[in-house]
Design a protein around this nucleic acid. Sequence first.
DNA 1: TATGATTGTCAACGTACGCAGACAAGACAA
DNA 2: TTGTCTTGTCTGCGTACGTTGACAATCATA
Lengths: 108, 108
Amino acid sequence: MKVNSALDLAAAVRGRRHDLGLSQADLAERAGVSRVWIATVEAGKRSVNFGLVLRLLGALDLKMDISSSRNLSDVFKGAKDAPTPRNLSDVSKGTPVNLDSILEGYRE
Amino acid sequence: MKVNSALDLAAAVRGRRHDLGLSQADLAERAGVSRVWIATVEAGKRSVNFGLVLRLLGALDLKMDISSSRNLSDVFKGAKDAPTPRNLSDVSKGTPVNLDSILEGYRE
DNA sequence: TATGATTGTCAACGTACGCAGACAAGACAA
DNA sequence: TTGTCTTGTCTGCGTACGTTGACAATCATA
């Protein structure tokens, strides 16, 4: 999930926390932060501590990636003039992809 | 690039800034922050403002993603017992991949 | 040499972050 | 109903963040 704003972070955190069946208090203890701070993050406050966000993501088994903001179209180098596919059904079988670009997102 | 710590953020920022040929002062003006703060981020300080980090990444044409911290091995569902490939040369041609999992990282 | 650009670092200052503790509202089950 | 759990929000408080302005060290170039 792309994070353009603090609201995106909020959605990712709350969604993942619900998936794990955790309360704000549970997550706060896991991550070593206060429950109020969790509520603050989930409310979309922008000026929160970046280091604490990393700890929070770790407690949620989420990872943060930073990469060049290129388009998905870079991955499908074979279909030059085709519109950027957004759904799997838009991609025909056998379409060549740039595997290097894909692997980059998975490196430790 | 996976961001596990503030030092990873520092490396991503400095590397990208150098690629763009920008000075700290240039980048500070672009992102609307102080030059001292840029230097602080590039020094790997953890407790920096998350919202300002997002603005900084925007000024560097970088994007932040948050996703489940799954292994690369999930992508290669066809090679069950094979070790998780780390280099493109480790992946044999024709290996089936989980395209849904790949596309997820590119959604807006 | 001199000059300019870049970067690390410091001091001072206003602001607000994150904390503990508390309270109320809502949901749900016994 | 009562009790428990969850969440949003408020207080006060100590701390440190981010800013401006400045200085020195380094490097490259004229």
